[in-house]
Every structure is written in C-alpha cells, then in structure tokens.
C-alpha cells in the first residue's frame, strides 16, 4: 500500500491540538465543507490590536485537512497577523499543481513542505486548501465587520 502522503511528519502535524479553545465573541466565524469527501472546517477569528489575530478552529475532516489546519494554527500561535496568508495559500496551491518545486517557505510556514507528496494526488488538493479558504473568508468577514 503506497502511503507516500501519510508520512510521520504529516501525521504528527495532523495530530497536534492547536487553537481548539473557543473564542469569546469572535469577529467572524466561517464553516466550509468539501462536498466531495465530507471535510468540514469551522474557523473563528478575533482581531487584536496591532494587527494580530486570535484563531480557533474545529476540523471534522481527513488527515490532510487536519494537518493543513494545524499548520495555520501553528503559524497563528506565534502571534502572527497571518497577513500574508493569501500569498502562502497561492504558493501552496502552486506547489500542489506541480508548478513550483522546492518552494522556499517563510520560517513559520516550513511545515507546508510536508504536503509536497500530495501534488501527485489531484483529488486531495482540496483537502489541503480548504482550511486556507476558510481562514481567508473569516478574515474578510472580520475586516468587513470592523
């Protein structure tokens, strides 16, 4: 059984329990589904002073979806504003499409390199990208609400 995408690094990342505590009065909450496979991601964010952001999420999804969500959670837990999330998501998408290999990731996004083997499995790309879409949507909703 070829388990190239289920390496220990991905499994560890998926198993991490980050940003699970619910936020009090979040500025935005977004739930996105991947109807093909049944992944569901719920993201809540609360904007903080200085552009920082508190993040909380819940994933009912596959291992790849959980790992991707935790990659974002880890980046956010370092006090980031996640302001460059769109660029990171684009770079990730590009890597999955095989358009760019050996990507140079910003320091707090190094774990995204673990997803490189997923490129060969087109039907799994949406699993990895769903959390990025959810956070981006939540960010947009929160900014609009201010």
């Amino acid at each position: 059984m070829n388990s190239d995408i289920y390496q220990q690094g991905i499994k560890s990342l998926a198993a991490a329990r980050l940003a699970c505590e619910p936020l009090e009065r979040p500025d935005a909450q977004v739930t996105l589904d991947n109807p093909l496979c049944g992944d569901r991601v719920t993201v809540a964010i609360k904007l903080q002073e200085g552009g920082a952001m508190a993040l909380s999420y819940k994933v009912k999804g596959c291992l790849l979806c959980q790992a991707a969500m935790n990659a974002i959670g880890a980046a956010a837990s370092e006090g980031s504003s996640l302001s460059g999330l769109d660029d990171v998501a684009e770079q990730l998408s590009s890597m999955l499409k095989g358009e760019s290999t050996q990507s140079r990731w910003p320091p707090k996004w190094q774990s995204l390199a673990l997803f490189e083997p997923v490129a060969a499995h087109k039907n799994r790309h949406s699993c990895v990208l769903l959390p990025f879409k959810a956070v981006a949507q939540a960010q947009a909703v929160a900014v609009k609400a201010i």
Binding site: M1, N2, S3, I5, Y6, C37, G38, D39, G61, C62, L63, L64, C65, H121, N123, R124, C127
Partner: peptide
C-alpha cells in the same frame, strides 16, 4: 480515520 483517507489508501490497493 476519515473516510477520505480510508478511500485513498484502499484505492492504492
């Protein structure tokens, strides 16, 4: 075990 992971791995078999 999520169904997508199960189906992916079963497809490999």
């Amino acid at each position: 075990m999520h169904s997508h992971d199960i189906c992916h791995l079963l497809d490999q078999r």
